[in-house]
Each structure stands twice: as C-alpha cells, then as structure tokens.
C-alpha cells in the first residue's frame, strides 16, 4: 500500500513540476493523470503498483468534493439574489453539453465508419 501511495504522489509531484517549469494553465492533477496513463502504457509503471489505491480513490471521488461544496455557505447571499439565472443556466447548459457531446460523437463515428467502408470497398 505504501508503494501505491508513493507512486500516485510521485505523479502528482511530476504534474506540479511540469506546471512550474512550463507555466501551462492546466492543473497539476490532470497532467499527473495523463503522465500516469502514459507510464502504464510504456510499462515504466506496473498496474499492480497502483491498482488498489486508485480503485479506492476513483470509486469514492465524490467524497473529496464535499469540502469545496460547503464553501457554498460563503456565497449564500449572492445565490439568494441570483438563484434563478444560476440554477436555470446551469441545468439547461448541462443538458445541452450532454446532448451535443453525445450526438457529435455518434455522428462523427458513423461518418468515419461510412468513409472506412467506402475505402475498403474500393480496395476490393
């Protein structure tokens, strides 16, 4: 388990280093995630080194958001004043994102598979 903690923190630290050196406007944790994925693929890191702790963290991700959510109590006044635009815009926009992303994915996939079929037909 110590190894699992050590590896995950090492990738977070690596992410922090990348942000510090390059100044990219991307959080260190996202960079750490991409680096971890790449290292697993390259075989530098073995899956057994990280699978247990990462399974635990990933399955309980929601819990770690609770403190940030409690920060809500600091802007209750603002929310009371403007709750209509906040709630409406958030809910409708979330529905739009889900629909647009899903449609775009299904559409581009069917397009690319059609193109693929056309190409293979020509070859035949």
């Amino acid at each position: 388990m110590i190894l699992q903690f050590g590896v995950l923190f090492a990738f977070l630290a690596a992410g922090e280093l990348v942000v510090k050196l390059t100044g990219v406007p991307v959080p260190s944790s996202i960079i750490g995630m991409v680096l971890l994925c790449a290292s697993l693929k390259a075989g530098v890191v073995k899956l057994e080194w990280v699978d247990k702790l990462s399974a635990f963290l990933v399955h309980n991700l929601g819990f770690f958001f609770v403190p940030a959510g409690i920060g809500l109590m600091n802007c209750l006044g603002l929310i009371a004043d403007q709750w209509v635009p906040i709630v409406c815009a958030t809910v409708i926009s979330t529905v739009i994102i889900i629909a647009v992303t899903g449609w775009a994915h299904q559409w581009t996939r069917s397009m690319s598979s059609k193109m693929y079929k056309r190409v293979t037909k020509k070859e035949v």
Binding site: L12, G15, P27, S29, C37, D51, L57, F64
Partner: peptide, 30 residues
C-alpha cells in the same frame, strides 16, 4: 467556513491524488 476549512482541507487535499488515479481506468481503455 474558514474554521471548517482547517479540517476540510485535509479531505480536499486528496482530490488531486484522486484525479491522478483516474489515469488507471484511462489506461485500461487506451
């Protein structure tokens, strides 16, 4: 909230580590 945050930060701290851990399911679907 500032008082709560003194404790809450210890939970919040793990959020970044948990995001790094998402690299594992990502790898499995590469």
């Amino acid at each position: 909230y500032a008082t709560y945050k003194q404790g809450g930060d210890y939970i919040d701290f793990w959020l970044k580590v948990a995001v790094v851990a998402l690299g594992v399911p990502l790898y499995k679907q590469l």
